[in-house]
Write a protein that binds this DNA or RNA. Structure first.
Lengths: 233, 233
DNA sequence: AACGGTAATATGTAGCTACATATTTTGTCA
DNA sequence: TGACAAAATATGTAGCTACATATTACCGTT
């Protein structure tokens, strides 16, 4: 791109990355000041700043005011995950999407849900259990709790046609998100719903969202065997 | 922060986010041009640009030249994952870290590894199997393949004291990363190594790295039951 | 030597301008 | 009507300046 005479901030970033790759700057080493790099490369400090920000965002370097920039002594593996709406995920794989509501009812939130939201005490919430299908076969079972105080509209929604997943993602943007991944063995009910052998290992994607400390929803998405979650970046 | 008279790009971002939250702009809607928003809020276009970039990065809006900015019609749940070095992960939990090499030998790469790297044919690679311990108990078992063409130094490393995980993360920065998560049932060997019941559900974190299309390493990190992977953002 | 205040310094941010780039829209000609 | 070229337009990027902010370094006092 901008391959002219001017250096783009991506060029600068890649050049510094290159220096880290080749060992010119090793873990813990301090890099020159932005201004010096700018002069050396013949670009503006703002360009170096953008490049450094990006390297910092991707976890390769650490920056501190007055302290300068240094290569992370203990790098982290950092990646961005995109989790689409389940319907879209199925459709993009070329399969036909299906949806089936299993149960919808108010119930007092159990301990796990109260803890996920960081609430003090239990309270009644809407529990929605549903099955996402891919070409007619079970794909993901979701066990969801919705806080009716934050989303009063759910009292008028039956979730028989549109999934809570879809409705919430479209209508309830969040300000805070908590994700966790773990594995569980299929208990009799799960193996029945997902049509798997009892005891099969299943990946669970647990998601909890808030708007400014007000809990929206928490959901366990229990996937079928063989399901893999991939990074896009 | 910059709470003075001047608006920071974070303020602008939050203000626009607020408008999306309250439904002033719904999914698919087009937002005003940056310049108009800048004028309305009394700040520079560059400030709005930064705010919009951030909203775009977090998957809330989509921007296209000439096309303008619009709220994503089908939002994605986007999150950033940080996976630290295993030693550090254990130490940060307050436990004592231990490491044990199980096996280290050259072997022809099996199909799965060849596929993960996107190679045409199999070739000999270094396989390193090792156990990470937390307070003396198994924590993560890693089954790793290293490409000796890309990292010839590994021929002189025995990985009995320092884990391949640590050495690679410190000495082999990558330019491309592939992450995948899934669940497996513990087979007899795994349940023996990890001291779990046979058939236990285990979360697997699979990581593959490259430097400019040259494969570095691919590793299956098989965690013990109860292990959870969390987002930091 | 310990403490505390002040200066020095590197990054962070806001604003401005100018131009680049991608895309849509418009207009013209066959 | 269709195809293609040209104009219009919104975002993207680079450079500059000025100032804010965090943190380290220094120095004087006790």
């Amino acid at each position: 791109m901008t391959s002219d005479s001017r250096l783009s901030w991506r060029d600068v970033r890649d050049r510094i990355h290159e220096h880290i790759l080749t060992g010119r700057y090793g873990p813990g080493d301090r890099l020159p000041r932005d201004a010096d790099i700018a002069e050396e490369l013949g670009c503006a400090r703002s360009t170096v700043q953008r490049a450094m920000q990006d390297l910092s965002d991707s976890g390769l370097v650490e920056r501190r005011r007055k302290g300068g920039t240094r290569v992370r002594a203990e790098p982290v593996t950092r990646a961005t995950l995109d989790i689409p709406i389940t319907r879209r995920e199925v459709e993009q794989s070329g399969a036909r999407y299906g949806y089936q509501l299993i149960r919808r009812r108010m119930a007092p939130a159990p301990r796990g849900v109260v803890a996920a939201f960081g609430l003090g005490a239990s309270r009644p919430m809407l529990r929605v259990e549903a099955l996402h299908l891919s070409d007619g076969r079970p794909y993901i079972f979701e066990d969801r709790w919705i806080c009716p105080e934050t989303s009063p509209e759910v009292n008028d929604l039956d979730f028989t046609e549109e999934s809570a997943n879809e409705w919430l993602v479209l209508n309830k943007p969040y300000t805070r998100l908590d994700l966790r991944f773990y594995a569980v063995s299929a208990n009799p009910r799960l193996s029945d719903l997902l049509e798997t052998e009892p005891g099969a290992a299943l990946l669970v994607i647990e998601r909890t969202t808030w708007v400014d400390d007000a809990p929206i929803t928490t959901v366990k998405a229990i996937t079928t065997p063989g399901y893999q979650l991939l990074t896009g970046s």
